[in-house]
Write a protein that binds this DNA or RNA. Structure first.
Lengths: 157, 157
DNA sequence: GCATTTCCTAGTAAGTTGATGGGAAACATA
DNA sequence: TATGTTTCCCATCAACTTACTAGGAAATGC
């Protein structure tokens, strides 16, 4: 799995907006401020924020005194929402949805494997909200994952 | 996450080899036979099988009466082994390993999120073997994932 | 020797990723 | 109304990746 620059930048931008939201939910933050705070190319960020607005996660205002803010409470925006808004479906097999692929012979049950992987990703990404990350207060099942031995180590070669 | 054609084709090829292995562990299967059985472009498959051999998963013999076979028992080859052999590391954030990325300000704890996603994927992919898929006998934690409501449905557009 | 089958290197067309540039449209203030 | 600010939108681009193809060398069995 590859977390794209878009998804990573998008999450960082939204966490900046979360911090601002917790201080004052109506306050607008300029794209330029987010760009310098998180070191994200301005024009690239602009496109990301536009996508997030079109998905109803962010609200924006143009002109002087304009900027961006969250359009929902940070406790109602999950990481899965963000990744789907920016990168499309969480999981795909050769471009198709896992449940749509068909297999023959001994590969018959491969579909179950890919569906299970997607389910595992959903279990994490759909249960963590922007508020959780901002407050460093992840759901219990997630912290259990992080406490597993080896979770922070890369595998051999 | 995107399961590449390589990983999908690779799994299907290995499941063909698993079926042959269960019948006779030494028996060789020709690339052409796998190609037609699973409808995979021959020359593309050739490259995939070579990668799997270089990773020690598959053994091969050239010449007439040559072909491919598993080099280890199918119960000792996990899906994670296969995906890593063909596509590299399971998870990456903007090209880097999740534990290597650094975040500033309110994004401080984003790293934990990506590490947790990787851990969730590992928990599935490192515990399913070729033998499990061939026998349609997935580990209990995985079948629990598949029994979750909505696991087989796609999320709204 | 000869047919077969894998091994290897190179190439390629199409698509994706990660950007950048130029201007139009909205908004606040003077 | 004029002016500066800031988002919106379109078009473009280079680099990379993906999925696949071509051609021949090397090994093996008969």
């Amino acid at each position: 799995m590859h977390i794209s620059a878009k998804a990573d930048y998008g999450m960082r931008a939204l966490l900046e907006l979360t911090a601002s939201y917790l201080e004052n939910p109506k306050k607008l933050v300029k794209g330029d401020a987010i760009s310098t705070a998180q070191d994200i190319p301005v024009k690239f960020l602009e496109g990301i924020l536009r996508q997030l607005r079109q998905s109803g996660i962010v609200a924006s205002q143009r002109g002087a005194e304009g900027g961006y803010r969250l359009d929902r409470s940070p406790s109602e925006v999950t990481i899965a929402d963000v990744v789907r808004a920016l990168d499309g479906p969480l999981a795909a097999v050769r471009g198709q949805r896992p449940e749509d692929v068909e297999y023959a012979g001994p590969s018959e049950h491969l579909k179950e494997v890919w569906v299970a992987v997607r389910a595992a990703m959903r279990d994490v990404l759909e249960h963590i909200t922007l508020a959780d990350v901002a407050a460093n207060n992840l759901p219990d099942p997630v912290t259990r994952l992080l406490d597993e031995p080896g979770a922070w180590q890369r595998r051999k070669p």
